[in-house]
Design a protein around this nucleic acid. Structure first.
Lengths: 361, 361
DNA sequence: AAATCGTATGGAAGCGGTTTCATCCCTGTC
DNA sequence: GACAGGGATGAAACCGCTTCCATACGATTT
């Protein structure tokens, strides 16, 4: 059994209350007593019992983060940022994985509630299941900040990029490379940011004077099979085949790419490709994928800042915060123009074109 | 404030003890009382306070895992397995990131101790700092199982692959492709498994009748700069230049590849390359990297099983467990023979050779 | 030297559960 | 109908810590 304050007190010849005062750094303790207690702590290798402390103080100094899948590289980067901010402010971060399931997400949230965390970051699994009632029952327990995947129709503190603008930027880039038949494959539209990214797609086309074709907007999901079906039927059809494809998130983008490669189509040879989120960041892998890069670390960091503000300010009436961070487009080979591409093909094995990534804006 | 048992009791018209019995599932409660309590739970949306429970029972049903860097894809996969096993047994897993620093690792461990976790999985940051004394002070607090990176000279429960055998397999593969000048770049040799992997390298050469050259064994680390220095000086020198390179772990391997690409060398054109751990698993990225693939999910899963055995059995005298899981070699292009390579170059842009990965053994 | 003040200290209560134990009531038996 | 037996129930203690409050002691003042 680990040593307790009471044992410390006996060894140091003081009362338990005094020991507590020494540990919490209260000044109301004599130097003599302090030293005796500190010695005793060293002798017994004492470690305060945070559980008991939390029970008494009703504070855990712990935050939670629930993400859909820790094996998707995007999320660990966010976690890093969140953990960093939390640590700087003396908070502890618990990471939970909902495995993309709304049910498990509920369980995880219940767990955090039972553990009495003081606040939560949430990247929701689907957004579908977050009805206002469920939301109310969650957010009455502790403050919540949503990240990246935002549930539609829910007024909630959030941190994400300027999704619409970033998507517009990506599409503009494709148009500048001469593409006019640009398809978009999306994740679930129950997420606000997926909708925003589609909006950006439309805006870019409109500004470029290109008519929007419903047949080029493929409402997908995070499921490999569904995405494969949409992409293959869209890309293999006889007429109206797009020359470029834009994926509104990394999971869907990777699924799209995988499914098209599996039927013998590749980028940039057969279609130009741009995706939200980096699929590989290593520039020596070919083809390099042009992507909308989100400031993942900062997103996690900022989200914790917003969350702590809610926690530490008691003023609950304050307006919802929506933080938008800037995204950038990193141009790589997958969006090469036909011309560049031809050049690249001829010399490809000797010296690949544009080894380094180019950053737009 | 969340509702307490006492309030439940008042609402249901029973005592707090009875409420507790209902919640803990004790049979010693009448159906009538049980229903009243369950109703009250629903009405108040009651959630038991795990903190209070833990304080009383001295059990948290929580495990911790400390890893060096959550953004390295290898670790999230382990976490997935660990979390899965923990959940199945009714335990909760806390994930902590030591950011590759031994000091932070200590802090994280202290935190877990203060949180009174019942056991810990550890992938150590360096292994250097884990002196037997420090080790004793940790493992006296709770059982620990080490994963993947094993500290040298420490008798500890562990889960890893057959490092020596897997390395031997990788080198044999290179030899079967005609390579005789095979260099190895390692991580820190303060880790037992790094030593084992070098041992596997030597064994393979010996069995193949190839003399071992000290100048081809590059003792590296996880640091980009150090690895770059070693690889560049080893690969660019005038004489005794190896035709193949084997990296004993993914971090070092990626650093090696990065550094060699940056000076204009690429695989498989200029050197064959095999690494422990997958750098990219997506087979449509070129070059595909031949790698020793560890069963990451299973490693996490098994590690939790071993840990729970220690926790739930009070018999502390039992011998240390060392679990070895099988690894496989996934052959991709980076270890092509010169012949295959030439063929691949000619036709590369039309139909890439070996799109799917080939698994050895 | 006595009174007053200030402050370090010890004792005790309480956080929200679990668990023990004595009590009470219901049932069955003679 | 009285009593034994047994199971459900409530009261109370306790987990380790913080915090409040009363006390006692040392220092300062008159």
């Amino acid at each position: 059994m680990p040593p307790t304050q009471k044992e410390l007190a006996k060894l140091a010849g003081v009362s338990a209350g005094t020991v507590s005062n020494v540990i919490s750094g209260s000044t109301k303790v004599s130097e003599r007593a302090r030293q005796k207690v500190l010695d005793a702590i060293r002798v017994l290798n004492y470690q305060p019992n945070l559980i008991a402390r939390s029970l008494k103080t009703n504070r855990t100094r712990t935050l939670g983060i629930v993400i859909p899948d820790i094996t998707i590289p995007f999320f660990p980067k966010i976690i890093r940022g969140a953990e960093c901010a939390a640590r700087e402010r003396g908070y502890f971060l618990i990471v939970l994985d909902s495995e993309g399931s709304a049910d498990r997400e509920s369980e995880m949230i219940a767990l955090l509630r039972a553990q009495r965390v003081e606040g939560m970051l949430l990247v929701t699994a689907s957004g579908e299941e977050l009805t206002p009632e469920r939301w109310h029952s969650i957010s009455s327990a502790f403050p919540v900040v949503c990240l990246d995947r935002l549930p539609v129709n829910l007024d909630v503190d959030s941190v994400c990029v300027d999704d619409c603008g970033a998507a517009e930027m990506a599409i503009s880039h494709l148009m500048s490379r001469g593409h006019r038949e640009i398809a978009v494959i999306t994740g679930p539209l129950s997420l606000r940011n997926e909708q925003e990214r589609v909006r950006g797609y439309r805006q870019a086309l409109q500004k470029g004077g290109i008519p929007i074709q419903r047949s080029l907007i493929w409402n997908g999901s995070f499921e490999q099979e569904e995405v494969a079906r949409l992409c293959q039927s869209g890309m293999l059809r006889a007429t109206g085949r797009p020359t470029a494809l834009f994926a509104t998130n990394g999971v869907t983008g990777l699924a799209a790419l995988r499914s098209l490669y599996s039927v013998g189509l590749s980028t940039p040879k057969d279609f130009a490709f741009v995706t939200f989120d980096e699929i590989t960041a290593e520039d020596f892998f070919r083809p390099g994928i042009t992507s909308v890069v989100q400031p993942t670390f900062d997103m996690g960091y900022r989200a914790v800042e917003v969350l702590l503000e809610r926690i530490e300010k008691t003023d609950t009436t304050e307006r919802r915060k929506r933080v938008h961070l800037p995204a950038t487009v990193t141009v790589r080979e997958s969006s090469s123009t036909p011309l560049e591409l031809a050049a690249s093909q001829q010399t490809s094995m000797r010296k690949p074109v544009r080894r380094g990534a180019v950053v737009a804006r």
